[in-house]
C-alpha cells in the first residue's frame, strides 16, 4: 500500500459518500445519471467476484463491501425511492449504456491476461469503469445547472483514478515485474475522459463562478 493508492481509495470513497449524502439528505438525484450509477454497480459486481474466496486484507474486504453496498443502494434509491426517483430526469439521461457494455465484454474476451471466467470478468470491469462516466458527462452537458455536489462528485471520481495512475507509476518503480498494461491503459483512458471536465471545473473554482460546461 502506498500513499497514492490510499489517497486514491479515500477519494473514491469520498465521491460515493458525497453522492449518497446528496441523495439521502436532500432526497434529490437531479443531475445524476442513473446509467453511470448502474455501470458502476456492474463494475463492482464483476470485479469483486472473489471477495469471499481470495482474502487480501481486512481493509480490502471492507472497502469492497462499502463500494458494493453504496453503488447498489444508489441505484436502488434512484429507481425505487418514491421521492428521489421523481427528481431523476430520465428524458435527459438517455445514454444507451448497452452500447458501452457489449464492446467492453467483447474486448475483455479478446484482450485479457488469462482466459478464465474470473480474469475476463475482472478485465471487463476495468473496461466498463473506464467508460462508465460517459453518460454522466453527457448529462452534465445537457443539464446546464450543475449543482456543486454533483460537480464535487464527478471531480472526486476523476481524481481517484488519477491518483491510481501515480500509484501504478510508484509500484512499477518499486516492485520488480509490476507490469499491467491492460489496467494502465484503461485507467489512463478513464482519466483522460475527465480532462475537459477537470479543465472547466478548476476554472470555475478559480474564477469562483458557477460550473458551466460548453454545449
Amino acid at each position: 500500500m502506498n500513499i497514492f493508492r490510499l489517497s486514491g481509495d479515500m477519494t473514491h470513497l469520498m465521491s460515493v459518500i458525497v453522492l449518497l449524502l446528496k441523495i439521502h439528505t436532500i432526497k434529490s438525484c437531479a443531475g445524476i445519471s442513473l446509467k453511470t450509477q448502474e455501470l458502476y454497480a456492474l463494475v463492482f459486481a464483476t470485479r469483486y467476484l472473489d471477495i469471499f474466496t481470495d482474502f487480501v486484507s481486512v481493509y480490502n474486504t471492507i472497502m469492497k463491501l462499502i463500494f458494493l453496498a453504496t453503488s447498489f443502494s444508489i441505484v436502488w434509491y434512484m429507481r425505487h425511492h418514491k421521492i428521489v426517483r421523481r427528481s431523476y430526469d430520465k428524458e435527459q439521461d438517455t445514454f444507451r449504456h448497452l452500447f458501452l457494455i457489449l464492446p467492453c465484454l467483447i474486448l475483455a474476451l479478446v484482450v485479457n491476461e488469462k482466459f478464465t471466467f474470473k480474469e475476463v470478468m475482472w478485465t471487463f470491469s476495468l473496461y466498463v469503469e473506464a467508460v462508465a462516466i460517459l453518460p454522466q458527462l453527457v448529462l452534465l452537458q445537457r443539464t446546464k445547472n450543475i449543482d456543486n455536489l454533483t460537480g464535487q462528485y464527478v471531480f472526486l471520481l476523476g481524481a481517484y483514478r488519477a491518483l491510481y495512475i501515480l500509484n501504478w507509476i510508484y509500484r512499477y518503480l518499486t516492485e520488480k515485474h509490476f507490469v499491467h498494461w491492460i489496467t494502465w491503459i484503461s485507467g489512463l483512458v478513464q482519466t483522460l475522459l475527465y480532462a475537459d471536465f477537470f479543465y472547466y471545473y478548476i476554472n470555475s473554482w478559480k474564477n469562483n463562478v458557477r460550473l458551466q460546461l460548453p454545449a
Binding site: D9, H12, D54, N60, H177, F178
Partner: peptide, 10 residues
Amino acid sequence: ETESSFKDEL
C-alpha cells in the same frame, strides 16, 4: 506471485 499481489487493488 505478481498475479495475487496485483489483485490487491480495489
